[in-house]
Amino acid sequence: MAAPTTVVVTGASGGVGRAVARLYAERGARVALVARGKAGLDAAAREVRERGGLPYVYEADVADADAVEAAARGAEEALGPLDVWVNCAFASVFAPFTAITPAEYERVTSVTYLGYVNGTRAALARMLPRDHGTVVQVGSALGERSVPLQSAYCGAKHAINGFTSAVRLELLHRGSRVRVTVAQLPAVDTPQFTWVRSRLPRRPQPIPPVYTPETAARGVLRAADRPGRRQRWVGASTRATLLANRLAPALLDRYLARTGYASQQTDEPDGPRRDNLYAPVDDDRDHGAHGGLNR
């Protein structure tokens, strides 16, 4: 019988990362859960255990390279050699570019882009000497086609694609059996839309159609199971975005400029609330995987 898979999931306390951890637990995997929110991490660990997996919890900000390295070291000490690393943590600010401060822009980039760089570095430091392992970058259709009001996030997701392609070529050059791939996701119903920092008049939401975290997580696991592909597109809407981007980019630009403001806001006015740009929102209360749109 094959040994259980050892997996690290960043952003594991909520949303897609939480759903990915659950699915790996159902396979009997050993799952290292990395995020900032203690309550969310503790709940995720309980779910992993209840579903037949073995959890390991590490509180870390993925923007901190030393913390990510420590998380990787702790995961291997607790669970064994890493087979899969899933980069999923992100942060965002919903606002026009001119309303986002330099510090906010730097923070989104540090978490959403450099967090993946840090995770990939920590994973490859362990996988390359063994010539075994897979790194999955949880990407986004917004890394192929940008939308208004999310310039920092879109920029980071585009950067992930370029970074991952370069690393993949380096692995091919050295003949390594380590794989790195991207799972490009559609809009997903997660708590992040209540956590993000926003300067919009109404509450932010993903652009429809919106998929469940479980649908996205299944796509991530398929990407990990078959990493030979450069990237895997999850959801019909994501594939449609890619096709439209290739066939009619100017038309798509005009469409998004016209509809992108309204489609990313609900009808409900937004008010003062906590956001997770610099500190977790799920430190004292678990928010689960869902945001409430597709329960």
Rank of each mutant, 00 (worst) to 15 (best):
176 S>E: 07
168 R>D: 07
69 E>P: 02
154 C>Y: 00
234 V>K: 03
219 G>F: 04
210 V>I: 14
6 T>S: 10
80 G>F: 13
169 L>T: 10
184 Q>G: 07
5 T>S: 14
13 S>D: 10
95 A>R: 11
71 A>Y: 13
78 A>I: 03
130 R>V: 08
243 L>E: 02
55 P>G: 04
115 G>N: 03
95 A>D: 12
126 R>T: 10
183 A>L: 08
43 A>D: 15
111 V>M: 04
15 G>R: 06
187 A>T: 08
222 R>S: 10
244 A>K: 05
195 W>K: 07
177 R>D: 14
226 R>Y: 11
110 S>F: 01
138 V>G: 09
248 A>V: 14
13 S>F: 11
236 A>H: 03
194 T>L: 04
175 G>Q: 09
146 S>T: 01
73 R>D: 15
100 I>K: 06
119 G>C: 10
213 P>G: 01
130 R>H: 08
241 T>W: 04
178 V>I: 13
224 A>T: 06
74 G>P: 11
48 V>S: 03
93 V>C: 10
255 Y>S: 14
142 L>F: 02
104 E>L: 12
195 W>S: 01
43 A>Y: 10
256 L>H: 01
61 D>Q: 02
76 E>L: 12
275 D>P: 10
82 L>N: 14
83 D>H: 14
51 R>G: 04
165 S>R: 13
147 V>H: 00
15 G>S: 06
251 L>R: 09
39 A>M: 11
244 A>V: 05
108 V>Q: 01
86 V>P: 07
225 D>Y: 02
101 T>A: 12
156 A>S: 08
258 R>M: 04
247 L>V: 14
242 L>W: 13
90 F>A: 15
200 L>N: 03
191 P>I: 07
101 T>G: 09
89 A>H: 13
2 A>C: 06
22 R>S: 10
166 A>D: 09
30 R>L: 01
8 V>E: 06
23 L>Y: 05
209 P>Q: 03
89 A>P: 14
171 L>C: 14
43 A>Q: 14
41 L>H: 12
262 A>G: 06
17 G>N: 05
258 R>T: 15
286 D>G: 06
240 A>H: 02
252 L>R: 04
165 S>L: 06
104 E>K: 07
42 D>S: 13
189 D>I: 05
60 A>Y: 06
246 R>D: 02
203 R>C: 05
4 P>I: 05
192 Q>M: 15
178 V>N: 09
134 T>E: 07
83 D>Y: 14
244 A>I: 01
53 G>T: 04
5 T>R: 15
71 A>D: 09
16 V>E: 05
116 Y>K: 03
23 L>M: 13
44 A>W: 11
162 G>D: 04
166 A>W: 08
186 P>M: 02
264 Q>Y: 02
190 T>K: 03
124 L>S: 08
3 A>Q: 15
295 R>V: 07
191 P>Y: 08
128 L>T: 12
64 D>H: 07
183 A>Y: 08
161 N>T: 09
260 G>D: 02
122 A>W: 15
88 C>R: 06
30 R>F: 01
111 V>P: 06
74 G>M: 12
144 E>N: 01
36 R>Y: 11
60 A>H: 03
107 R>Y: 03
138 V>F: 05
250 A>R: 15
205 Q>C: 04
137 Q>D: 15
50 E>Y: 05
151 S>Y: 00
202 R>S: 01
16 V>R: 07
112 T>H: 00
140 S>G: 11
